[in-house]
Design a protein around this nucleic acid. Sequence first.
DNA 1: TTCTTATGTTAACTGAGTTAACATTATCGC
DNA 2: GCGATAATGTTAACTCAGTTAACATAAGAA
Lengths: 201, 201
Amino acid sequence: MGKYHHGDVRNVLLQKAETILTEEGPTGLSLRRLARMTGVSEAAPYRHFDGKDGILAAVAISAFERFAEQLETVAANVERHEERIMKLGAAYVGFAVENPQHFRLIFGRERPPLDQYPELREAADNAFDVLQRAVTSVDRKAEMTLSEAATAYNRALAAWSRAHGIAMLVIDGMIAPPADQELGDFVLGLLAEDLIAPNDA
Amino acid sequence: MGKYHHGDVRNVLLQKAETILTEEGPTGLSLRRLARMTGVSEAAPYRHFDGKDGILAAVAISAFERFAEQLETVAANVERHEERIMKLGAAYVGFAVENPQHFRLIFGRERPPLDQYPELREAADNAFDVLQRAVTSVDRKAEMTLSEAATAYNRALAAWSRAHGIAMLVIDGMIAPPADQELGDFVLGLLAEDLIAPNDA
DNA sequence: TTCTTATGTTAACTGAGTTAACATTATCGC
DNA sequence: GCGATAATGTTAACTCAGTTAACATAAGAA
């Protein structure tokens, strides 16, 4: 005789969903299990979310928001352009390492289709905007020629790719920092590796 | 009254598994469906594979092999070290773009655990060896100091990360070549972006 | 108060993974 | 050739997931 309308089911579901996602990833997240954990009937979640994708979308949205916030903070607090790119990359990888499941959720194939969740699309766009602005904005406010702009854009993409690749390989356990090195230093080292001119033959 | 022992079930299953994986990814691949497509009972696949992970492992192994082959071919046919890294990166991304589902399978979280499939581990290790050898081997066979070796290793990781990041972002639809550019040129451009010394302030 | 909406319930359907129990065919030692 | 054994196939069942329909009750507006 579960009491009807305890009024907070949606939030509780979201909360538990966060927990499960963090611990086991989207595959382990099942609506039935969620319902059981919440002490509510197995169909109840459907009153609050548009099926499994719906709940994943909700979680993904908040993940995108945290992600964007963290990047924004870093970007806002570093003056030099190069340093900003580096720190941003480190923050990018840092988020991935601290929240691997969320990172996978927002980038991977399990992410609900953006077309079907406008708020999700918005959250995603916003996060990428933060990234892009932070990377492309240069210190001096000189006007750029078209080709300079193109170069800046490509450099942004290249930087993003670099961070993304490191993040992915690290959370998938393909590469790891050597025993005597902190993760942060390791990442910064890798990011720097490409910035240093390899002007050998 | 399906005839017993038509003798090729395993291969047919693998074949169909390839097809489904290519078209829909690992989620769409179901043993029951596979069995139905093959015209065999729904439990039959379990005689040939160790459950779903087993069949995924088999597919992943062959994917790793193709991947390694393609990288090897590229690495073997380019003399200059820098050019080899570039071409290798392009091939890496090329494989991902041409076989996105396979690429995801061998790198992603759906990949069966390496611990449980020794042949899979072997295939994986082999592919990464190819990569690493190709990237770290330098033209001149000078002996390296320890710190030089460490640098070379880090540079290899950086190059790998770069290619991996581009591959991921492209197959996940996060970045795309501009309309007037071929994918290959686009990728080479991004790869080069980091190799060119950005020696501005 | 009564009508409507939101939110909860139970029960059912579908489809997946997996296993057990059983049946048939190959194959190998004799 | 023949019989034991392994390999390979079958059916039937179990569990769990997602999802929906039909129904019940609580809250709030008219």
